[in-house]
């Protein structure tokens, strides 16, 4: 199953990466094993978001920068308004990085 490394940049992914980094540098864990852990994190995070999260958010704003490279969209919005059941915020600058969801749905024979 293909996975995105996208979520490693999230808070939990960063913490995991730093922890693994410490373990690797201390010799407790081999780099190969650390990479396997990260790959598993990619899968688990994707599954969790898909299965456990149901919230919906609307965003409106001005497009400052857009870029589509290697199937990854990168947007920078200014004066973006986030609205959902949980949050309602306006932020001066937001960066959005999005991978193609179709890549996670390979044809299953």
């Amino acid at each position: 199953m293909a996975t995105f490394e996208l979520y490693r940049r999230s808070t939990i992914g960063t913490c995991l990466t730093e922890t693994l980094d410490d373990l690797v540098s201390s010799g407790a864990v081999s780099p190969e094993l650390a990479i396997q852990v990260l790959v598993q994190f990619d899968k688990s995070m994707t599954d969790a978001l898909e299965s456990q999260v149901k919230s919906k958010v609307n965003i409106k704003g001005h497009l400052h920068t857009y870029r589509f490279c290697d199937n990854v969209w990168t947007f920078i919005l200014t004066d973006a308004t986030f609205k959902s059941e949980e949050i309602s915020e306006t932020l001066s600058k937001v960066k959005i990085v999005a991978c193609d969801s179709k890549l996670l749905q390979p044809p299953h024979p």
Partner: peptide, 13 residues
């Protein structure tokens, strides 16, 4: 951190 299942974004250049 906020997790979401779906987002619709509208913006203008």
């Amino acid at each position: 951190d906020v997790l979401f299942n779906k987002v619709c974004i509208f913006w203008s250049n």
